[in-house]
Design a protein around this nucleic acid. Structure first.
Length: 420
DNA sequence: TCTGGGGTCCTAGGACCC
DNA sequence: TCTGGGGTCCTAGGACCC
């Protein structure tokens, strides 16, 4: 069975900053979120000082600055660029690569344990030499075990950054020492639930009855049982999948109380997210706007709301999207609240050219009986709502709802042409 | 008084990840 | 005074249909 390696860049954002500012090496360093609100990355020295992930910077600022902690605002363009360099090196050493996040990737490394470890050490050296980024590598028969191995590689100096968790004895020994929350996919809530069921460690979970776990905690945790046993349930997702949603959201530096300010914010988020969408060459068929008050402020009246608008035609046009966004905002806006955050989410994404150039994205004359019949036939064949009649103002429009399409449908584009 | 059963679709919200 | 931003997947429940 093929072994999976998880390559994870150590202290990624902090290391990226250091590659270009070598004088920061050896000093504790933190990277802050937008608005410099809270800590989103730390160098090893900063971690050792006890600076926690996600803490609001203002709480500790004075204290830490006195101790010589260097601070940087985040620079995602730089991190994205460094990430691409690392990933392209990894790509050269495997047939299958899943880029899991900006600083992590899963690789398939063959089925020979010793061989896999050897390759992993080689990868680690090369990445360091070519990019200045330090990585840790965990190897195991499943993604979840590779994750656990990676943790161990990171924490134990004796591993020199690479650890293989291939045989059952090692797996049991390690899982017995971990907390439930150390398992990829288990956080506070699930850990609580599992403990209440008498499952106290990852080793207990590995040995639990999958059917029992499924009945109590659902299919996600059942999968983890198998994954911890080394029977992979989570495949390597190395095919570039299409994005399913895009978001632009922000916390406001100063809370918003007036409708006009909120409208301005929502329109500007819409324009930002629309631009991102066009970059991926996509169009959206739903737009959601959400607004909320400051949930940390216990003395304040709380309000959260979101509104989904179905667009009659999938579009990437900022004007149309902004119009819909304002309509959504109008439905949820309430006076007398102090709003702290808002966002715009685009859903039902589909390739842009197709629908925009499509046959149905225009106010046509009333559909003929023959056309109605043809459309009915398509809906019957490929599922209802593949094509539907929508209204924009008084004008009926035909639109293609690509998110309802079966995969086979795309090869039958000709059918649509006939409808016309 | 009796009070189906199975299916689909949609939505809201929970939980997790980085 | 001040607490990030961007994602995915799953579930439960309601509406509706036959």
């Amino acid at each position: 069975m093929a072994l999976i390696a998880l390559v994870d860049c150590n202290n990624f954002y902090a290391t990226c900053e250091r590659v270009f500012q070598p004088h920061l090496r050896g000093r504790p360093l933190v990277v802050l979120s937008n608005n410099d609100g809270c800590v989103i990355a730390r160098s090893q020295e900063a971690k050792d000082m006890g600076i926690e992930m996600g803490v609001p910077w203002h709480v500790h600022q004075q204290n830490f600055e006195r101790q010589g902690v260097a601070v940087r605002s985040s620079n995602y363009t730089l991190y994205g660029d460094m990430s691409a360099r690392v990933m392209s090196i990894l790509q050269q050493h495997t047939n299958r690569l899943e880029v899991y996040s900006i600083d992590e990737a899963f690789l398939e490394l063959g089925d020979d344990g010793a061989g896999a470890e050897h390759i992993a050490r080689h990868i680690k050296d090369i990445v360091r030499e070519w990019t200045g980024i330090d990585v840790s590598i965990g190897i195991g028969p499943s993604k979840t075990l590779a994750k656990a191995a990676n943790r161990y590689a990171k924490r134990m100096a004796t591993t020199q950054g690479v650890y293989a968790l291939n045989d059952a004895t090692d797996q049991q020994a390690l899982l017995g020492t971990l907390a439930l929350e150390d398992v990829w996919g288990i956080a506070f809530r699930l850990a609580q639930r599992l403990r209440a069921l008498g499952i106290a460690t990852p080793l207990d979970l590995r040995q639990a009855d999958p059917a029992f776990v499924r009945a109590r905690c659902g299919v996600v945790v059942e999968r983890l049982v198998y994954e911890l046993r080394g029977q992979p349930c989570l495949g390597l997702d190395d095919i570039q999948h299409e994005r399913k949603s895009l978001v632009a959201s922000r916390s406001f530096g100063k809370p918003i109380e007036h409708y006009r300010d909120m409208r301005e914010a929502v329109v500007s988020y819409t324009s930002r997210v629309a631009e991102k969408m066009r970059h991926f060459n996509l169009a959206a068929s739903h737009i959601i706007v959400f607004i909320e008050t400051n949930r940390f402020n216990k003395n304040q009246a709380q309000y959260r709301a979101s509104q989904n608008i179905d667009l009659p035609v999938a579009t990437a046009d900022t004007g149309r999207l902004a119009q819909a966004a304002v309509r959504a905002l109008n439905q949820i806006w309430r006076h007398n609240y102090s709003y702290k955050k808002a966002g715009v989410m685009l859903l039902g994404l589909c390739p842009a050219g197709r629908v925009e150039d499509g046959l149905f994205d225009r106010a046509d004359d009333a559909p003929s009986r023959a056309r109605m019949k043809a459309i009915d036939a398509i809906n019957q064949r490929y599922g209802r709502n593949t094509i539907r009649l929508a209204s924009l103002g008084a004008q009926p429009q035909w639109c293609l709802r690509r998110q309802f399409l079966s995969p086979s449908f795309t090869t039958h584009w000709d059918d649509l042409v006939q409808v016309r």
